[in-house]
Design a protein around this nucleic acid. Sequence first.
DNA 1: AATGAATGAGAGTTCATTCAT
DNA 2: GATGAATGAACTCTCATTCAT
Lengths: 216, 216, 216, 216
Amino acid sequence: MSTAPRTAPRTERGTRTRAKLIAAAEQVFATLGYHEASIVKITEAAGVGSGTFYLYFDSKQQIFDDLVEDLNRRVRNAMSTAASQETDRLAAERAGFRAFFGFTATHPALYRIIRQAEFVSPGALRLHYSRIVDGYIQGLQASQAAGQVRDMDPEVAAWALMGIGELIGMRWVLWEQAGADGTHPDVPEHVFEEMMDFINRALAPNGQLPAEGTQR
Amino acid sequence: MSTAPRTAPRTERGTRTRAKLIAAAEQVFATLGYHEASIVKITEAAGVGSGTFYLYFDSKQQIFDDLVEDLNRRVRNAMSTAASQETDRLAAERAGFRAFFGFTATHPALYRIIRQAEFVSPGALRLHYSRIVDGYIQGLQASQAAGQVRDMDPEVAAWALMGIGELIGMRWVLWEQAGADGTHPDVPEHVFEEMMDFINRALAPNGQLPAEGTQR
Amino acid sequence: MSTAPRTAPRTERGTRTRAKLIAAAEQVFATLGYHEASIVKITEAAGVGSGTFYLYFDSKQQIFDDLVEDLNRRVRNAMSTAASQETDRLAAERAGFRAFFGFTATHPALYRIIRQAEFVSPGALRLHYSRIVDGYIQGLQASQAAGQVRDMDPEVAAWALMGIGELIGMRWVLWEQAGADGTHPDVPEHVFEEMMDFINRALAPNGQLPAEGTQR
Amino acid sequence: MSTAPRTAPRTERGTRTRAKLIAAAEQVFATLGYHEASIVKITEAAGVGSGTFYLYFDSKQQIFDDLVEDLNRRVRNAMSTAASQETDRLAAERAGFRAFFGFTATHPALYRIIRQAEFVSPGALRLHYSRIVDGYIQGLQASQAAGQVRDMDPEVAAWALMGIGELIGMRWVLWEQAGADGTHPDVPEHVFEEMMDFINRALAPNGQLPAEGTQR
DNA sequence: AATGAATGAGAGTTCATTCAT
DNA sequence: GATGAATGAACTCTCATTCAT
């Protein structure tokens, strides 16, 4: 009857229990998808009683939302960390995409979970994509200010880049057989280069096409 | 037809009933998603008894597969029909994307359904994307042969184009509020032009970039 | 809306259709049991449309009742025909049991159907057994009048005989593997003789035990 | 216990709930038969929620099998307990049959359930009869060793005794109207005596038939 | 804080029966 | 007389959630 959310553990033991549940949920959702995953399966994987779940989460939806939030934060972090270590615009772009594909290869769960989010948690999907796109927009605007990207609407370009990464990653990472450790291979080199060439041409200022060597 | 249950009625009335069910399923799946959609909701939307469903489909899975198949066929048809009425490569590309967005606007179900397919019907998702990409590849190869597209791997470009259309369509068609008739607005003009410009630059042969000022 | 039973075909074609349905029902009920048998399976086996069934039978129950009636008539007929060809009381008894086991061996359907009758068709089971027992009672009374059976309540003895035949038949006919033609083997000779000896001793007038040769 | 689902509760409350379900199933199966009995009817009779059923049993089939097992164990126990308190072979036999009819009178479910087992649970029916018959065989062999039963094949005699009890019980216990408490009357005295006389004569060693006038 | 037995709404599915053709 | 598409009540079974312990 209390209106307080149940998500705040008061004791240290409680904190540990909540963490076990989140970790179990990530694994179970990734393996089975949202609907096939049941609370009992999650609590069993966490090694706690089924009733315990509701001490920390209001519903199955809520733990799902928490998970999407978590994964989104991690993929953006991976991308921005990688990009920020480069000074050149082109190198930063390459590093960002490499980080994105790397995260996809090692965390296929992200992909799987996101694809279910639209109906499970209205808004979670939009938030996920919007946040990543915001990162692209900021990068593009900075590059425009430095004269390294042509004059254009950065929002449209950002969604285009997001789409390119999304489907290339789907095709050449997720669809390739995962190894025994559940990790997929990375995008093949020539595909990555073709993709970067495609993007460079689309973004380059007039008359500043990339140097011959990389154009093929 | 190869997927129909043995009991599938063969009369004209039966054909009409099956069509009503497919149309209802499209609407219900699009609105509620696969898991929230129930056979009863579909049959109610179709205006038939719940048992009637099983005269035409073996399971909820099967009508889902049939629907994916159906929508895939229709969207590819819309795209190729539109593109084939243009002789110029650029015009054909524009027409193809316009048809894609138009289909998305009037059949949001396609999008929403595909996003759920990974866990629901492994294989259907891949088939859907692969078939559309095949269409892109053929178009790109023809344009390459005509010297209108630069030398490049058409498969990578095709997946990039697919991704661009996918996310631009998601952002500017599906995420925009649908009207009373359930139809979403089309992509705004300037977004469409920015996108086409992006693509043109990515595909244009060296030295054949559209002249400044005539691009829009 | 008419109160007339639908079981009376008016034309010759109707007579044939009804017969096809009865034959199909016997086969389907025997194979699948009452509840697993569906009207559609029966009509398919009969080669008619499913709606046709209700031109001749009011319900699934009714055709079942008709079948029980039919099988009961046939097994009693087999038994009494066999017995009536013997003049000696002992020989008649032996012939009756032989006929009973023979019918069981070639029509295992009877057994299977009867075992389901109690809940399917209240009264059918009682009628079946009562009628057979009535035959035994009449035989016993005649033998008593001839001094060939001791003074006793023929009704109790009749039910005892029925039970003996029932379980010996179950154990040594039905439980033995049927051949390729669906026919079970007959009761082994020594079992039959042991059983007849058992019965003879139970029924024989005091001091008139069967001759040494048949006692073992 | 070996047939319990993995989720079967282990607390004392759980034990009580399981017992309530088994008792309810006995009553419902006896009244309605296997096919008319539904899980909901059983759980309603047990006074628990319908989902509770599946905490204790995997399916309707399983509770049926468990019930057959349970009733079989109890009827054999009642029979052997009664018989073992008598030293005289004849008295033991009488006590065994009395116990059998008494069990039938208070647990008509056993009878009704067994009759349905053939199609419902192949094997359960055979096991039930075989186990009871095994008890008869052992008793007969012991009596033969003591010279109280004539030389004969005890297996055939055992099945004959089983059949006699089966049909006499059906006719004079089950077919007689049950009282308000659901319990049927016992076999009438003169029927019981006639039956015992029938059996005694069938089993008695040559020359040891009970003397006239002292048989009843 | 933790438990797990209990719940009941709702899922997918079947089939005896009806009725327009 | 014959058909078979259509029906809907009833089935078995699942699972997110509650609550007494």
